[in-house]
Amino acid sequence: MLRIPCPHCGVADEAEFRYRGDASVTRPPADAGVDAFHDYVFLRDNPAGWHLEWWQHAHGCRATFQVKRHTVSHVIAWSGWPGEAPP
């Protein structure tokens, strides 16, 4: 059971949240073309290590936020709002 730190509600069980994937990819501008959107939708770094990812507090405040988590140790180093950068 991961314990996820929601920036609004504090730490809560993983079961309260919905995972939304890699937060390091950015949606390209509308005119960027198929290749750029292909990379955005499909290609991932998928690191065995620190991973910046989206979580939604679906059974809480419904906020969407970023979590910096280690995909091997599951250690969570940081969570923050969209647009914020981890230290």
Partner: peptide, 17 residues
Amino acid sequence: ADEVLLHLEWHLATVWP
């Protein structure tokens, strides 16, 4: 119903804040 709401909220929060 649930998926659409999550989808809209996520895009609003992260893509078009």
